[in-house]
Amino acid sequence: EASTLTAEEKLAILKTAKEVAGGKPVLLTVAEDSTRAAEALARAAHAAGADGLMVLPAMRYVSDARETLNHYHRVADASPLPIMIYNNPVAYGVNITPAMYADLARETKFVAIKESSGDIRTLTDILNAVGRRFALFSGVDDLALESLMMGADGWVAGLVVAFPAETVAIYRLAQAGRWEEARALYRWFAPLLHLDVSMKLVQNLKLAQSLVGQGSEHVRAPRMPLAGEERERVEAIVRAGLATRPALPSL
């Protein structure tokens, strides 16, 4: 919900996360309307103790390749923090291509990619273009196992807020090459993971975590909590998942 938060609120959340993270790294997402605002937030995040940034292209305006690269380089220049590049052309209209990653690879602060194009072929194209220059992460819940199989290093997960043990188990099974066990767990998880791939993913995830006792449904306007048939559908998916929740393999 970054687009509905002020910069001050984002920094307050960052500081709260740092307090409860037990020393684990905390990243702040930079998704601003302008490059100038993104630079300012990157500087403020560093001053507030962020360990890294996840950076999106500037919001609203659909930038071309030259403009997108300029945006990323200027944000990198604004802060010493390491940066995860977030590519989500489906939601934001800007596609960072493998050729563009070859340009970004020259800046050492760019260390990771969150790949959310929805096209599993993109991972192979990135690896062919820049090798292992970046740590690669899947950003689409219902492509996570496929991404791990195709060489992704990790998974920036959504349903983890409601089902953390199962999310971690799939990752660890994949890392161990225990593909049959990973596939079985992933197939059970799939109806829930599909909730992440929706214009209402925020409401879906918050309802799911509320139903398992992990959080609240509160969202900021213009979003509103799910109601009517939409709510009933998500509740049914979550309750079906809980009713058939498998025992996790030993890891």
Rank of each mutant, 00 (worst) to 15 (best):
R121A: 15
M59F: 14
L28W: 00
K114V: 06
V30L: 08
A129L: 08
L69G: 07
T122N: 13
R132N: 14
A144H: 10
F137I: 10
L69E: 12
A91E: 14
I126Y: 15
K109Q: 14
L41F: 00
I96T: 11
Y61E: 09
L41Y: 00
S147W: 09
V75H: 06
T108Q: 04
A44T: 00
A42H: 02
M100F: 03
N70M: 13
D64T: 08
A47E: 03
G151A: 11
F110Q: 04
A76W: 03
D125I: 01
D142M: 07
S63C: 10
P57R: 03
R60K: 14
D103V: 14
A99M: 08
L143F: 12
L145P: 06
P57I: 01
D141Y: 04
P82L: 10
A42W: 01
A99V: 03
I113V: 15
N95F: 07
A78Y: 00
P98E: 06
N95Y: 10
A144N: 13
D103P: 02
S138E: 09
Y86Q: 09
N70F: 15
A47K: 00
A102Q: 13
E67S: 15
A99G: 13
Y72M: 11
L41A: 00
N87L: 03
E39A: 05
I113M: 12
T124L: 11
P57S: 12
F137S: 11
A45F: 00
R60Y: 15
P80F: 08
A45N: 00
T124E: 13
L56H: 14
D64E: 11
S138L: 11
E32D: 12
P57N: 08
E67W: 10
I85K: 05
V90R: 15
F110S: 06
N88S: 12
A65Q: 14
L136A: 07
L56A: 05
E115P: 04
A99D: 15
D142G: 05
Y61V: 13
L143S: 05
N87K: 05
T108Y: 00
A38R: 02
N95V: 02
E115G: 06
G93E: 11
A102K: 14
D51H: 13
G131D: 11
H71E: 09
S34C: 07
L28D: 02
A99H: 08
A47T: 00
E32C: 10
N128Q: 11
R36D: 14
F110L: 07
P80L: 12
V62D: 03
L53D: 03
P89W: 09
G151P: 08
V140G: 02
D142W: 07
L56V: 09
V140H: 04
M59R: 15
V55W: 01
D119K: 12
G131M: 04
L56K: 03
